[in-house]
């Protein structure tokens, strides 16, 4: 679980707001794994117990005994931070092709505005998972799913016939079966048809899949 390289904390105290973001993100992370974290767990990651308690005074978390949980306001904010972090990861990993993106993602999550966040999400095709396979909380744009801005990364189900595409990531079940046929992130493919079923050519291999599987394969044009 060294998911977040907490560079900001290492570099110095940063602003209180950044510290709150980090704390909330850490708590979210633990809750996602299934249990409310102990104060010590969170302090071990963000570094300063007094400041963690200050976050509680600001009304974002409650500390009951040893355990930390999120207040409704805290949960909303944690959600946004996590969403921005994971979107940033996707952006760096898929589009900018940066290998060591963790530290930058951590910077990024604090600075982007809501409209930038939405634009990135749309650009990436409203991705459901981060590169580590964790869910990206949905934003308003995902629910509306507007296609005004043609997204760079989109599901194969939305691609047009004849397009040359590159797979960025796959969320459909049957990942291993697809991998056996050469359908893996990074593979180049051509979409031959969408009806009555999807047919794609990957090199000299031709594979037929249904819409359900296709909508879990995310691609960008090449």
């Amino acid at each position: 679980m060294k998911d977040f390289a907490h560079k900001i904390v290492q570099e110095g105290p940063g602003t209180q707001s950044m510290f709150e973001d980090e704390t909330l993100e850490t708590v979210w992370d633990f809750i996602e794994l299934g249990h409310a974290p102990a104060v010590a767990d969170v302090v071990a990651r963000v570094g300063d117990e007094a400041r963690v308690r200050a976050v509680s005074l600001a009304g974002f978390i409650t500390i009951a005994g040893d355990r930390i949980s999120l207040t409704p306001a805290g949960e909303r904010r944690a959600r946004d931070v996590v969403r921005r972090h994971r979107l940033a990861e996707r952006l760096f990993a898929d589009i900018l092709d940066i290998k060591d993106y963790e530290a930058d993602a951590c910077h990024f999550e604090h600075v982007i505005s809501a409209s930038v966040e939405e634009a990135i999400c749309t650009l990436l095709g409203h991705p459901p998972l981060c590169p580590h396979g964790k869910p990206i909380p949905k934003g308003a744009c995902c629910e509306l799913y507007t296609r005004k801005l043609a997204p760079l990364v989109r599901s194969l189900a939305d691609a047009e016939v004849g397009a040359m595409l590159r797979v960025t990531f796959i969320t459909s079940p049957g990942l291993q079966r697809l991998a056996g046929l050469g359908l893996v992130p990074g593979a180049a493919l051509r979409l031959q048809q969408k009806l009555p079923a999807f047919v794609v050519a990957i090199g000299e291999t031709t594979v037929a899949i249904d819409r359900d599987v296709a909508s879990g394969i995310f691609v960008r044009s090449v």
Partner: peptide
């Protein structure tokens, strides 16, 4: 229901 994935030979 399992997704439909089938290789199509030449």
């Amino acid at each position: 229901r399992t997704g439909f994935i089938l290789e199509i030979p030449p």
